[in-house]
Write a protein that binds this DNA or RNA. Structure first.
Lengths: 156, 156
DNA sequence: CTGATTATTGATACCAAGTATCACTGGACG
DNA sequence: CGTCCAGTGATACTTGGTATCAATAATCAG
């Protein structure tokens, strides 16, 4: 992702273990393994992928830990159209995602115009806006130089 | 949804059975039952809901027919954050959705500014944009007058 | 109309993702 | 150190959806 896109970003210090502790949860071996693995991964991942990577940690614990991290706002859950949802570390307070339809790489961005659109829509919609979500499907720069077939189908 | 929102809309004549025939699929009793039921429903629905409503049609056929309709562009598939995806008839060529987090009602809208945002992002993103998706979570007008609890959790 | 051809159906079995249960374990803390 | 309770993980279960395949229904040529 181009650096210019991140101009409006206030990046957060990321420590997933702390995010759990802040919620009053104990720092245990299993949780440290899960958060450590997530921080070690470069991008987005699925729950099953994490289970495979951490055979020493039970499935239930992996799923529970992910849920805690999502509840804490430290992870974003991205409902991809087909297949299991993906998760990515929430580095930016409120943001949207770019998803490469070939390699699955997920990026974050903020764009003030999106928020302006929301404010203008608020006047027209019959009801209260309580949130929004936006995903941009791309073929990322590095995939443009390759010839692999698509990973996700995109019906938009 | 406010009528003003639909101003940018070119509404399409909707005939799901024709959408299937246009793809070279036969007009059968089961498919007519499924498309008829979908057209009869007021808003968005899940595949399982359709199966329950049509006990005379097999699960496999319901799922197959939905898939055909999505492929034909006659239905939109909406990945709600938790639970099964919802489907709604695509009345407008390219559009976005409002989703009431209480009653699950789904609306469509077009807003030219969203497309303008896409064009400005295209210059900044490292890669090719191949599509985008936007959902606005709302509490719709009719739900504002009630006191039911939320149906969907919204982490945005 | 009749029979041949082929798409479609739906019961069944299956698979994948995720959750509930519950006896056991190990952190925290007096 | 011992107690207590949060946390764990094996297991069984649920849900959403797909593959299989024999039976059935559309379609079409004659």
């Amino acid at each position: 992702m181009a650096a210019s896109l991140m101009l409006e970003t206030e990046s957060r210090g990321i420590n997933l273990s702390n995010a759990l502790e802040d919620r009053g949860l104990r720092r245990t071996g299993a949780r440290t393994a899960v958060t450590g693995r997530i921080e070690h991964l470069s991008g987005a991942f699925t729950a099953e992928q994490l289970c495979r990577d951490l055979p020493g940690v039970g499935r239930a614990t992996v799923y529970r830990t992910i849920r805690h991290l999502v509840d804490a706002g430290a992870l974003c859950k991205l409902p991809i159209l087909d297949g299991a949802p993906m998760y990515s570390i929430a580095r930016v307070e409120h943001h949207h995602h770019t998803i490469c339809s070939r390699c699955g790489a997920v990026g974050e961005f903020r764009h003030s115009t999106v928020e302006r659109v929301m404010r203008s829509l608020a006047k027209e919609i019959d009801g209260d806006i309580i949130g929004h979500r936006m995903e941009i499907f791309i073929t990322c720069g590095s995939c443009l130089n390759e010839s692999t077939t698509g990973k996700f189908s995109v019906h938009v």
